[in-house]
């Protein structure tokens, strides 16, 4: 089973190729410091495969959100290029959709009108818009709330609408920037399961940025672990856990992979002591054979 999954991923075509991404910010001179450069991302290389769910985890400030913005075309790298389907990304477009942390719904529009927003931009006629939005609202399970306003919805529902909106105009890739961070733990888990369900159905390529290792391991085919600032991809961990992943959270394999990623992240921070404890404690006892 594991080998199949690995093969499947490697066989897939490259959807997005990010080469040698570097992002430097110029900090203006203030009273106390001279102006200087802030390197947010240094030498980042990443390939996203068609149809996969790739998670990016990293410590705060490592540049993962910045990188996602670059994928969306909202920011430009100082050097390096990003290609999607062999075409260079130069700016935002409707072939990529983004779901942000915090609630980005237009509060003065109903759920339906929110979902139709992208379709309006595409100049799709009204009847078609209605049909399409109806479909996606149903996909996220909010048919009954189609004519409600965001202020009437709970946090989880709002994010579901955000996902529907991002999917409605049929982008090739869905970019998600810590979308479930602002939601309580239980809702987050159900949203994660929702996301997997939607992903199975729509077969989109998804790039998912998160702080949460659990979340990344639960959702992703592969997890890109970033270093602390200045950020770069330290290692890409293939998650060979079987799908569907209901109930996987309590399994031993889950714990092991989770721990591995945790270790990768920890190695970046100062505590060498923690590393020592981590190594002897868990890794050896759980899965001595796995050595990705």
């Amino acid at each position: 089973m594991a080998e199949n999954t690995i093969e499947r991923i490697e066989e897939k075509k490259d959807k997005i190729i990010a080469k040698n991404i570097r992002r430097v910010y110029q900090i203006k001179a203030t009273e106390n410091n001279a102006g200087h450069e802030f390197e947010a991302i240094k030498e980042l290389n990443l390939v996203v495969k068609q149809g996969e769910l790739l998670a990016i985890v990293g410590p705060s400030g490592c540049g993962k959100s910045t990188f996602l913005d670059m994928l969306a075309g909202l920011e430009k790298p100082t050097s390096g290029e990003i290609f999607m389907d062999d075409k260079k990304i130069t700016g935002p477009a409707l072939d990529r959709g983004i779901v942000l942390q915090g609630y980005a719904l237009f509060p003065w529009r109903t759920v339906r009108k929110n979902v139709e927003f992208g379709l309006e931009i595409k100049k799709i006629p009204e009847k078609e818009r209605y049909a399409i939005s109806e479909r996606y609202i149903d996909l996220v399970g909010l048919s009954k709330f189609a004519d409600r306003y965001p202020y009437e919805l709970s946090g989880g529902m709002k994010q579901r609408v955000a996902i529907a909106r991002a999917l409605a105009y049929d982008p090739d890739v869905l970019l998600m920037d810590e979308p479930f961070a602002a939601v309580d733990a239980q809702t987050r888990e159900s949203l994660q399961e929702e996301l997997l369900r939607i992903w199975e159905k729509t077969k989109k390529t998804i790039v998912f940025v998160t702080h949460g290792i659990d979340e990344a391991v639960f959702l992703a085919d592969r997890v890109a672990v970033m270093t602390a600032n200045p950020g770069t991809v330290k290692e890409i961990v293939t998650i060979d856990l079987p799908r569907p992943r209901d109930g996987i959270r309590s399994s031993a394999e889950f714990g092991w992979v989770r721990h591995k990623i945790w270790q990768l992240l920890q190695n970046d921070t100062e505590s060498a002591v923690k590393e020592g404890i981590g190594n002897t404690d868990v890794a050896g006892s759980i899965a001595p054979t796995a050595s990705l």
Binding site: A72, L74, G91, L94, I98, L100, Y103, I121
Partner: peptide, 18 residues
């Protein structure tokens, strides 16, 4: 206006008019 809304709009490559 919440900057997130503007960011969302920009990601869809909307014109200034929109």
């Amino acid at each position: 206006v919440n900057p997130i809304l503007i960011k969302t709009g920009r990601s869809m490559n909307i014109s200034t008019g929109v």
